[in-house]
Structures are given as structure tokens and as C-alpha cells.
Design a protein around this nucleic acid. Structure first.
Lengths: 186, 186
DNA sequence: CACTCACATTGCACGGTGTGCAGAAAATGC
DNA sequence: GCATTTTCTGCACACCGTGCAATGTGAGTG
């Protein structure tokens, strides 16, 4: 597993230095001193080496987070806490240096970031909607509320992230503000 | 341009009949009776032939739609109208038959749909946020409201779409309901 | 040490996507 | 009928991703 992280680090470094274009699987493999074939043993695709994966929550973790909230808590509040913990997980994950590199890469290639987020997000949303359905005792296929709540929560995360990228405000406080808007009504 | 639509139709047909796997550029080209190279003259990528493009609003159209709303209208209401028109454009666009085929394909390959939506959505969101900034006389980089409003609006669209895919309710009324939740507060 | 068993690494061949280039072919204007 | 412009095409190439078989490599065992 250390190997995997090592390759990832080298690949990101390479992409930042010579451009994403130049970071072919061949070049990455050479830089990491492994064969192209071995690269694909560690990563299922070239994209995967630039993914958020190690810094990103999984759908399961997120649902677990939600389960820990008191059932009687207001749903928006539960969602807020969940989103905050997603943001916290993404923001640091304890590997400040490595994460910093990836962030640079994403800043330079926003389309890459979008693609990466898409993966987990879709699954996480579905899982959270189901769980809220259970907690609220409604059927998400019949009641719009759970779906709207979760999607709006992710929208808040996205709005806050975009904002903190341009401005200099703290992500956590932006999320709180976004949720305040949601709770109060736009 | 009729040619382009023709190729698209053939490609979608092929993917539905023989599976998305079998619909290689080679196979599509053969079925459309053109060379592989010519296929890439019409479409920049294989994905593009399965894109929402002809049934989809552009960022510019969406912003134009917003500009037509009275400035004093409540922002949520403006956003609701914009989203409704996006949904309407996506839903029919006058080509019921062709669109029906694409929908089948998307139903069979949800990941395809996600990827397709991502493209325009990112640009449309950015454009709408900027326009709301102007209309409301605030700087979107300093004020979270425009970003939150637009992202929440897209969240409403997504929630409504997911819902209408599983249930049988009318998309437009689902969108209205979603916006009612947003306006009132979750 | 010799042996084997598990496992990571590698080379190779292949099928697929996407692009630049230059020539053929077809449509268009005169 | 001929010239010009546009479209189509073949070809070569770089790149991604995968199956398969061979080759290390290292640990444990007798």
C-alpha cells in the first residue's frame, strides 16, 4: 500500500512539473521505475492515480456518520453535520503535503476535479437518501423530501467549496452559512 | 447538420441493439456507411455521439432565460422558472422519438448519463451565478447567496429527475414541489 | 542447501480511442 | 468543361487498457 501512495505522489509531481498532457502512463511508470503493465496493476485507469480516493470519504463512512446522529434531530441539522464531516475529511485527511499537491493539480484542471467528485458523490447521495428514508419513516420513491434534502446538502457543499476556492474564508463556516440559508429558506 | 443527426440516430440504435460495448467507432462508422475518420470529423469523441447535446440547453440559452425575468422577482422564483425551462427543454425538444431512444440508453447506462450532464452543468452554473450576482447587485465571490441559490436549484432539478425516473409523477410538478421546499426552508 | 509455493513484476500482443496529414473525391462556382 | 473549395478517406501514429504467459523473488520447510 505504501507503494501505491508512492506512485501516486510521483505521478502528481510529474503532472505538475511537465503538465497533465505529458504525464502519460509510460512517463509515470518510468518515473516510478516500474513497467507500464505494473502501473495498471496498481491503478485501474490513468484517472485513478489522480483521484481523491485516499482523501475522500466513502459512501459507507458517510452513512455511518449519519447513523450516529440522534434520530429526532432535525434532518437539516443531521445533514449539516454529515456535510461538515465530509468537508473535514476532504480538507485534510492528515496528509497536508500530499493533498496540497493534488489540490494544485485540480486547480489547474477543474474538469479533472469534477470527474473525480462525480464518482463517489452519486453513490453517496443514493445511500444517504435511502438512510434518511428509513430515519424519517418515509419512502424516498414516494416522498420528495429525502432526495431534496440530500441533494441540497451536496449543493451547499459545492457552493461552499467554490466559494472558499476564490475567497479566503474558512470552509466550515461557509458550509454553516449555506445550511443556514437552506434551513431558513432561500 | 442533418448528417450529424443521422449518424447519432444510427449510433444510438446500434448501442441499444447490440450493447454499448459493441458500439465501437468502427461499428458505428460501418453502420452509418462512413469511414472511422469521418466519424471523428463529426464527433470529437465517442461519448459525444451519445450526448444530450441536441436535447440540451446551452449555458447561454439558460442565462438568456434568466435575463427575461423581471429583476424584482424573487430570486428563488426566477431560478424556479429557469429550471422549469431547462427541464422542459431536456424533456422533449420536439424530437420525442429520438429522445426516447437516448433515454433508454441512459436508463441502461446511468454512468453515461452522469458524465453527459456534468459537461454543460458546470458551465451553466458558473454563468447563472455570475448573472444573479449582477441582478442582485452583489459580488458572488464575497456573497454566498447566488452560488447557493443556483446550486440548490440544480439540486432540485436532480432530485426531481431522479424521482420522476422511479415514480410516475410529472416532472414539472416535482420541480415545483422541490422549489417549494427550498423557498420555505427544509 | 534444495525445494516449492505464493505473489509481484514484466513483456507481449491485441483491441480500442483520438489526431495530424496528405491525397482522393465530390460539390460548387464561373 | 474547368478551377476551387469543401468533404471524405486512408494511413501512420500515440495513447489507454487488458488478457495471458513467463519470469523473478522471497519466505518458509524439510
Amino acid at each position: 500500500m505504501a507503494r501505491r501512495a508512492e506512485i501516486r505522489r510521483i505521478a502528481v509531481r510529474l503532472a505538475l512539473d511537465n503538465g497533465l498532457e505529458a504525464a502519460t502512463t509510460e512517463a509515470i511508470s518510468a518515473a516510478a521505475d516500474i513497467s507500464r503493465r505494473t502501473f495498471f496493476n496498481y491503478f485501474g485507469s490513468k484517472d485513478e492515480v489522480f483521484s481523491l480516493e485516499p482523501h475522500q470519504w466513502t459512501a459507507e463512512e458517510i452513512v455511518a456518520e449519519l447513523r450516529e446522529r440522534p434520530v429526532r434531530e432535525k434532518p437539516v441539522e443531521s445533514m449539516r453535520v454529515v456535510v461538515q464531516s465530509m468537508a473535514a475529511a476532504t480538507d485534510f485527511a492528515g496528509f497536508a503535503a500530499e493533498w496540497e499537491l493534488l489540490q494544485q493539480l485540480y486547480r489547474r484542471h477543474p474538469e479533472l476535479y469534477s470527474r473525480m467528485k462525480l464518482d463517489q458523490a452519486d453513490r453517496a447521495i443514493a445511500a444517504l437518501v435511502a438512510e434518511f428514508g428509513v430515519r424519517l419513516g418515509v419512502d424516498p420513491a414516494a416522498d420528495l423530501y429525502p432526495g431534496m434534502l440530500v441533494n441540497a446538502g451536496f449543493a451547499a457543499l459545492q457552493a461552499a467549496e467554490n466559494h472558499s476556492r476564490t475567497g479566503d474564508r474558512d470552509l466550515a463556516s461557509l458550509i454553516d452559512e449555506a445550511f443556514a440559508l437552506l434551513a431558513r429558506g432561500l
